[in-house]
Design a protein around this nucleic acid. Structure first.
Length: 435
DNA sequence: ACAATGGTCC
DNA sequence: ACTCGGACCATTGTA
């Protein structure tokens, strides 16, 4: 048993006596089953959306060419940079540079969005082109005879997370103008429902416990809105005075904590001055001394042992920690901070998958030898795990028993480990992945 | 075939 | 001078 686990159990957390290697062995067959199950895609919805967006895209290209004064390939960053910065002479003050010339990344273009009408059109072009080329066109070509998509899950990431490829079903759009529409095309089969369950702030809860951060543990125990709580702390105001913009900034601070926060990184993600970002971080660490200690501890451990590890013992080796090139060493420090958190969260989800698969097959699955209902009253089809997206599980279940199975999913996810704070899963039932 | 750039997700 | 953690994939443009 590793140090972290020993200490965790002493602190009253109930952590199963199992190693990361054993978790991985046990989750493998579950993954193979999920791959075989697949998820149904409503190809018609995709077809209609593609048609509509293709014509949108066409209009956008024409408008962009008109505003530019000539035809060019909007999808080419180098041609686009020529048009924007050489020909239209848009300001390049705060813009990041690439190897040759200025960046045309969306985050950079947003800084000059009010300088020319063409910018917002380009951003819209990019959004739509992305959806068509990455999702709307390729995915329908991959469905089987039952219109189901089958991904391949891998376990070779450096933190212990799972990955999904061919196709990747872990980056299906959810935000933006068309995210919901795309997700709604992932549907339950006839007579079935999709149950989607995601952990709420699992990584922050994990780091609160790994770091034994008093303030954060208190917040989670109280069931506070963690981002509002953080806003009150870093702005030095009372909870009721927190504005939505302050909450947004605090949310970025909380995300940053898990990534190994730097003033520069926070300033980039919020598009604010570095000084301002540095102040937020300072204020945060003044209150969250546990987190501050955790950060130092992981870096020290990385230096002493050459690796850091998760609750269940997944190791991340850190050969670059002693690099004399500053930014290389600093990047490795952020990895040292993030890996135990991201990796532990991944282990918790794997444990939930293993347990849920077990419960679904013993309690809610029709024996394959018979087509008839069982004593549990289920119909002729199984309930089954379909997808895993880092902190989310998607299950397909007979409509008649969706409520019951949704309760089981939530129960399993929330009790598979007992951390120092409650872990909460939000569950929804619907005909598609949207809800 | 491969690197660079950009973008989607957690 | 210059970066935030982990993935996968599309397109462009060069080799």
């Amino acid at each position: 048993m590793n140090e972290i686990l020993e200490k965790a159990n002493k602190l009253g957390m109930k952590i199963p006596a199992i190693t990361s290697e054993e978790i991985d062995e046990a989750v493998k067959p579950v993954l193979r089953e999920m791959e075989k199950n697949g998820i149904k895609l409503d190809v018609k919805v995709f077809g209609k959306l593609e048609k509509n967006l293709a014509s949108e895209l066409d209009k956008l290209v024409r408008s962009i060419h008109t505003l530019a004064g000539r035809d060019f390939n909007v999808a080419s960053p180098s041609q686009l940079a020529d048009v924007l910065f050489d020909e239209l002479k848009l300001p390049t003050n705060n813009l990041k540079k690439t190897k040759d010339g200025f960046s045309t990344a969306a985050s950079e273009l947003k800084k000059i969005e009010d300088q020319h009408k063409i910018i917002s059109l380009i951003l819209e072009y990019r959004e739509i082109a992305k959806l068509i080329s990455t999702y709307l066109k390729p995915l329908p070509l991959l469905v089987d005879e039952n219109s189901r998509l089958h991904t391949t899950y891998g376990m070779e990431t450096s933190t212990g997370r799972l990955n999904s490829s061919e196709p990747n079903l872990q980056n299906i759009p959810i935000r933006g103008k068309y995210g919901e529409k795309i997700r709604s095309a992932f549907v339950a089969d006839k007579g079935m429902k999709l149950i989607s369950a995601d952990y709420s702030q699992i990584e922050l809860r994990v780091v609160a416990c790994l770091a034994q951060d008093r303030a954060m543990i208190e917040s989670f125990k109280n069931g506070d809105d963690i981002h509002t709580q953080t806003a009150a702390e870093i702005f030095g105001i009372s909870l009721s005075k927190v504005t939505s913009d302050q909450r947004r900034k605090a949310k970025a601070v909380n995300f940053g904590i898990v990534y190994g926060q730097t003033p520069y990184g926070l300033s980039q993600s919020l598009a604010i001055p570095i000084d301002e970002a540095a102040l937020y971080i300072k204020n945060y660490f003044d209150i969250h001394t546990g987190i501050k200690n955790y950060v130092n501890k992981m870096i020290t451990m990385g230096h002493d042992k050459g690796y850091v590890e998760t609750l269940f013992g997944t190791r991340r080796y850190l050969p670059n920690l002693k690099s004399h090139i500053r930014y290389i060493a600093e990047a490795e420090e952020r990895i040292a901070i993030n890996s135990p958190v991201q990796g532990t969260a991944a282990e918790i989800l794997k444990l939930a998958m293993i347990e849920l698969d077990k419960r679904l097959s013993t309690e809610y699955r029709v024996p394959s030898t018979k087509g008839a209902a069982t004593s549990s009253g289920l119909g002729t089809r199984d309930s089954q795990l379909l997808l895993t997206v880092h902190d989310e599980l998607v299950v397909e279940a007979p409509a008649k028993h969706a409520d019951e199975i949704a309760k089981l999913v939530k129960e399993v996810m929330e009790s598979v480990v007992t951390l120092c704070v409650p872990i909460e899963a939000n569950v929804s039932i619907g005909d598609n992945w949207n809800k």
